Structures are given as structure tokens and as C-alpha cells.
Amino acid sequence: MAQHWFCLYVQRIDATKNMARCYTMSIEPNLFGGASLVRRWGRIGTRGKERVVLFKNERHAIECFLVLARKKRARGYRPRPRSDL
């Protein structure tokens, strides 16, 4: 299995709606020779929820990763602004 590292952290903050959400995805190898898509989401600062989806190969995991990333972008999630500037 090729080692492609995919990791995404996006957040959606709207003070007028008291909304501060984050969403994280990563593709990781699993013990069965396939790939796992690990998704975590919730309110910023809380433990939130987690879901792991197993795939037989990395290509299917990457396709799912890209579809979910597009959906989050369409819902208003954006990368965290750089705070060191």
C-alpha cells in the first residue's frame, strides 16, 4: 500500500448563531492491509464524535475523502486562519 497522507482540519464559526464547529478527516493504514478514513466532528473545544470507515484499498478512501471535503466546503467550513501572522 502506498503511503499517501491525507489530513484535513476545517472549522465553521458564526458568532451571530453561537456556532463554533470543527471537522477533521484523515486517511490512515489499518491492520488488514487497507485504509481507514477517520472522521471527527463537534463543537470546538469539546471531545465531539468519531467515525472510522474501513476500505479495501487507499484509492477508495481518497475518493470518499475528497467527496466529503467538497461537501464541507459547500456548507461553509474553512481552514483555520493562521494566527502567527
Rank of each mutant, 00 (worst) to 15 (best):
R73T: 07
A35Q: 01
K71S: 14
K49I: 02
T24D: 00
E58C: 10
R21K: 13
R70K: 11
P29I: 12
K17A: 09
V52M: 06
N18E: 06
R80S: 05
E58N: 02
F32S: 12
A15F: 14
V52C: 06
R59E: 14
G42A: 04
K17H: 01
W41M: 02
A74D: 14
I62S: 06
G42F: 02
R40L: 05
V67S: 10
E58A: 09
K72Q: 09
C64D: 05
S26R: 05
R21A: 07
A61P: 00
G45W: 08
F65A: 01
A74N: 10
R70I: 12
Y77L: 03
R80E: 10
R70W: 07
I44Q: 14
T16L: 09
R51T: 15
D14G: 11
G33Q: 13
Y23R: 13
P29A: 12
W41P: 06
L66S: 00
K71C: 11
K72A: 03
F32R: 14
G48K: 10
L54P: 09
I62H: 13
R43T: 14
G45Y: 07
R21T: 06
R21M: 12
E50S: 11
E63Y: 10
I44F: 14
L37I: 03
S36H: 03
P79Y: 08
T46E: 12
Y77H: 06
E50D: 03
F65Y: 09
R59L: 13
F32Q: 11
L54Y: 11
Y77R: 06
A35K: 00
R78I: 15
R82I: 15
R40V: 05
W41E: 01
Y77C: 06
K17F: 01
C64Q: 07
N57Q: 05
K17Y: 02
S26G: 02
E28V: 14
K17E: 04
T46F: 08
A69Q: 03
P79F: 07
R75A: 03
L37G: 03
H60D: 15
R51P: 04
